[in-house]
C-alpha cells in the first residue's frame, strides 16, 4: 500500500488549521493522529480540519477523530471539520458522529 496522504499544518494565535489531502485509511491514519492529537492537547486551542481534498476515508479515520474529540474535551480545546466531500460526510452521518463532532460544510477552513 502506498502512503497517499499529505497534511499541512498552519498555526496562528490559538488556532491550528490542518489541511488534509488524499486518503485516510488504516495505513495513513497514524500520520493524521500524529499531527492532530498534539494540537487538541493545547488548552483553548481552536482546531479546524479542512477535508476538501480527502477523497476517501474509512472507519480507522473516524477512530482518529473520536480520539481527537475526547482529547478536546479533556483539554478544553475545540474541533471543527470543514469542507467534507459527500462520501466522507456520509460516514459521519451513518455513525451519528456528526451529532457530537462539529462539522461545517458551508465555510472554508481557516477563514
Amino acid at each position: 500500500m502506498n502512503i497517499n496522504l499529505s497534511i499541512d499544518v498552519a498555526t496562528t494565535d490559538n488556532q491550528t488549521t490542518l489541511t488534509i489531502k488524499g486518503e485516510i485509511d488504516a495505513y495513513t491514519a497514524p500520520l493524521l493522529k500524529e499531527k492532530l492529537l498534539p494540537a487538541t492537547a493545547k488548552e483553548a486551542e481552536k482546531i479546524v480540519v479542512d477535508l476538501k481534498d480527502v477523497t476517501y476515508m474509512d472507519s480507522t479515520g473516524l477512530g482518529v477523530f473520536i480520539s481527537a474529540l475526547k482529547s478536546t474535551k479533556e483539554h478544553g480545546s475545540t474541533l471543527t471539520l470543514v469542507n467534507l466531500q459527500e462520501r466522507v460526510h456520509r460516514l459521519f452521518k451513518i455513525t451519528s458522529l456528526d451529532s457530537i463532532i462539529s462539522i461545517d460544510t458551508t465555510t472554508r477552513g481557516g477563514e
Partner: peptide
Amino acid sequence: ARGLVLGAT
C-alpha cells in the same frame, strides 16, 4: 435507525 457508534461518549 440513527444512533451513535459504541464507545464515542
